[in-house]
Amino acid sequence: MIEVRKLEKVYPPVVGGLLSHNEVRALRGVSLSISDGGALSIIGESGCGKTTFGRILAGLESYSGGDIAMDGVALNSLPNNERQPYFRRIQLIHQDPYTALNPSHTILHAMAVPLRIQAKLQKKNDDWILNRSKELLAMVGLDPVGTLYKYPHALSGGQRQRVVIARALTVDPKILVADEAVSMIDVSMRLSILNLLSDLRVRLRIGIVFITHDVAAARYIAKDGELCVLYRGEVVEYGQTDEIIVRPVHPYTQAMLSAMPVLRGLEEAGPDRYIPLEGMDDFEGQGSGCLFAPRCRHATARCQEQHPDLVPWDDRLSSSSHHHACFYPIPRNVVARPINRENAL
């Protein structure tokens, strides 16, 4: 069980040069929890803070405020050097399997180096390292003997991502944070990687945090878990995955879901689907209002002035976990529906 409480991240301003920018608030008080073997998908567009969130969880970046608790241990209460072993149990799966493996080393090397650290801790010998490497590669669906001595460039994108997952398993993680883990993999291979992650959840009780802008992949991973929608560092909607998809109440969630392509011929667009063109470049919100107000077509004067908090959506049809941050929550049906055919695939 991992609990994230009011996590804040502020990047200091950069002055001068091409990349100069003001202070950036990447995360504004994000609170979430992931149970052992649970699944949580985080969706949002680039710049919403979802990648920062994953990197903080994996201990690759510091945070400016809030706290992370693992199995009841608040990491803020620990000295710096004692936090690392906790963060190590949260492993990040990078987006790009082509740079996530060292091109100069064989797969065996990639597996053996972290395993050697484990072997030292657990007083195991070199045979254990080799056997464990094979065992983990087999677990992620690779042929251990054929893969061990290969270099990354000899593997396809999907195979590489499997190796990356196997490598993350060397440290017995509690949580895998998959940041756009399938977006650079060929379409035909994506589903099997998603299945692998789901499989690890069941077999090893590893929690999955799936970070993506692809809502359908998010749904696939967290079909029995939760979906969280981030906008500019804030949770704007949260709840059981299918409930959010079928009855989204926040206009931003509705925009994200509308943006999913409709497979014409197999599906028909949802009646409330709306693709905005205006305002798609207005990222800077002004003043104290709702951050999404400048882009929201339902925004009122109140939205410009007051900031909505994350509150439960009390509606007879929804479950208690459904939360939203909107003054005017109205469920809209925006997602595509499959057309019923006898000859369905």
Partner: peptide
């Protein structure tokens, strides 16, 4: 073609795309 794909590859690739609605168990990896 999307309604009635005839090549095994086209069929498999369409089936391998997760969808927002409908039965997720229908999705099959290639």
């Amino acid at each position: 073609t999307l309604r009635d794909p005839r090549h095994p590859y086209t069929r498999a690739i369409l089936r391998a795309i997760p969808r927002l609605t409908g039965d997720l168990n229908r999705a099959r990896p290639l």
